[in-house]
Amino acid sequence: MIQAEGLRKRYGPAEALRGVDLDVPQGSVCGLLGPNGAGKTTLVRILTTLLRPDGGSARVAGCDVVRDADRLRYRIGLAGQHAALDELLTGRGNLELFGRLHHLPRRTARSRAGELLERFGLTEAADRPAGTYSGGMRRRLDLAASLVVAPPVLFLDEPTTGLDPRSRLTLWDLLRELAAEGTTLLLTTQYLDEADRLADRVAVLDAGRVVASGSPAALKARVGGDRLYVAFREAADLARGAEVVRDALPSRGTGPGAGPGAGSGVGSGAGFGKGPTGLAGDATGIEIDRDERRLAVPVPDGAASLVRVASALNAAGVAVEDLGLRRPTLDEVFLRLTGADAA
């Protein structure tokens, strides 16, 4: 449904896109991840006919984004980073305006506006100016405005930026419904959990290039398997605990490459990202964080290892404060792929 090949775009001396390839099948949700300035918005602008690429080609819904731009505009919807609404018009007025601009007859535009208001939970606020809406309501109205003619392809540029958690969940539900109805969605986001929850496929964009793509699970697998965490009640138990853990696990020739590097726990709350202080690795890949009285170790067979380690620690009488398995998050994938953890 969306195919891009070798897309390039430069703004003066700065290259925003340096040959982007993308393939999004019909009815799927593609999450476009990338740090600020990676070229996400530029890519969306090219695919929605707002910008002309300097090189390469792209087709959306069977239309070339440059040569068939006029025809393509009948087949896409865009919800941008700003809620692109007329703040003075009412919610209903905005939707009717966009319906009329899609050449719906007046009555159809009116009934379509009513339907969308209902579906997006805005019926009560329908006749208030959009300028009085809360952030979440605006985003919903904005999304509704891009759906007036139910386009087969919908582009969403950071749809939930700045929303509170509840509004985000509501919006996610709406997006999932749309995908279930067969709409192809391309969404850019900085929130990795958003991509994780919504996207069938993720493309990671960095400095104008796609550096990785695949399902969220496949991307996570690239960073490595599960990791086991143990937190000890007493700092003094740390060394002995590490020995017990090492003995409990099947020995294998794990090197530093088996698990994520030292700075990998960003954003997860269980982080080992404290820098080199008190951190030590050894041949089994056990990392020890003395400040937090914790250790972490990559394990090949998640749950089985957990059970073995738990009973071994119990048998050895080491007081454990916390114990658990953690899968790598998309955050780790992201930081690793975009080289942001080099710093």
């Binding site: 006919t49 707002l50 941008g80 601009l101």
Partner: peptide
Amino acid sequence: RGVIDRLRTQPI
């Protein structure tokens, strides 16, 4: 506000 962007992606 992005209204122009939206209008430009519509078949107007």
